[in-house]
């Protein structure tokens, strides 16, 4: 009888301890990687490669996501707001939703799937094929070479991506507004910019930087700690995407609370 009660509690306790250990390990990993940003040498070539990979090659998927999100947002807002004769608020709802929330969150989720998985797979493969050990024997610190440049690149590239996503998302909404909802173009744009405030954009860009850091951190951490050949690398890739997606949503709430909470 005692075992019936104690066994689930013990399992819960073990799970909680494991979660705390992992959180601690990720935090130490991040701190070590960050410390390498301030200690020379810095591998600019690796930074440039990661930056191009994130900022340039993620652009198509992020752009498409943003455009369609803006279009859907305009349509959905119209069907809702028409009930209260509040169609004039559609432009401001689209721009505020995109800059504060949907731009950063959706772009980050797309980048998590693309870049987080790619970092985990590449570094994981390097781990299981001894390439990371080889770096150490070749006078190169793997954290400095593989992790620090990727963290910095993702933290800088994500706000730029989100800025583009914001603009394209607004354009998607504007397109639907004038083509399908019979708005006058100038009036739609005026309404968009009249209600947009600097903090709407800045808060979204700060979120984007944090999300970029999370995506790169989870991708590199999962890859760096992968074990056991192809299966281990596959598991690391999945974990990187799932963990960064959940963390993006959790941190989104936290940051929203900080920026806009009462």
């Amino acid at each position: 009888m005692g075992a019936l009660i104690l066994d689930p509690l013990a399992a819960l306790g073990r799970g909680a301890f494991a979660a705390c250990r992992t959180a601690g390990a990720v935090a130490l990993f991040a701190l070590e990687a960050l410390s390498h940003l301030f200690r020379p040498p810095f591998h600019w070539r690796m930074f440039a490669r990661a930056f191009v990979e994130i900022a340039w090659f993620s652009l198509p998927v992020v752009a498409l996501t943003a455009v369609f999100t803006g279009m859907v947002l305009a349509l959905q807002s119209y069907t809702g707001f028409a009930r209260f004769n509040a169609q004039s608020a559609i432009a401001s709802v689209v721009v505020i939703s995109l800059t504060r929330e949907l731009g950063p969150v959706l772009a980050a989720l797309m980048v998590a799937g693309r870049i987080g998985a790619s970092f985990a797979a590449e570094i994981g493969t390097m781990r299981v094929t001894d390439q990371i050990d080889a770096l150490t024997t070749l006078s190169t610190n793997p954290m400095k070479y593989l992790v620090a440049p990727r963290l910095l690149a993702a933290t800088i590239a994500m706000p730029l991506l989100v800025l583009v996503a914001d603009i394209l998302g607004v354009m998607g909404g504007w397109l639907i507004g004038i083509v399908k909802l019979n708005f006058v173009s100038a009036a739609y744009l005026k309404s968009t910019f009249d209600f947009l405030q600097t903090e709407d954009v800045v808060s979204g860009l700060v979120k984007a930087a944090v999300f970029g850091f999370i995506v790169a951190l989870m991708g590199t951490w999962c890859g760096y700690n992968s074990r056991g050949g192809a299966q281990g690398v596959g598991g690391a890739t999945t974990t990187a995407v799932v963990a960064s997606s959940i963390l993006i949503l959790a941190f989104d709430y936290g940051l929203t609370e900080i920026f806009f909470g009462q």
Partner: peptide, 19 residues
């Protein structure tokens, strides 16, 4: 680290950097 600079290693599978 300075000592390791004087050591060369050939890994079993080569461990060449793919990229």
């Amino acid at each position: 680290e300075a000592l390791n600079d004087r050591i060369g290693m050939l890994f079993q599978n080569g461990a060449l950097f793919d990229s």
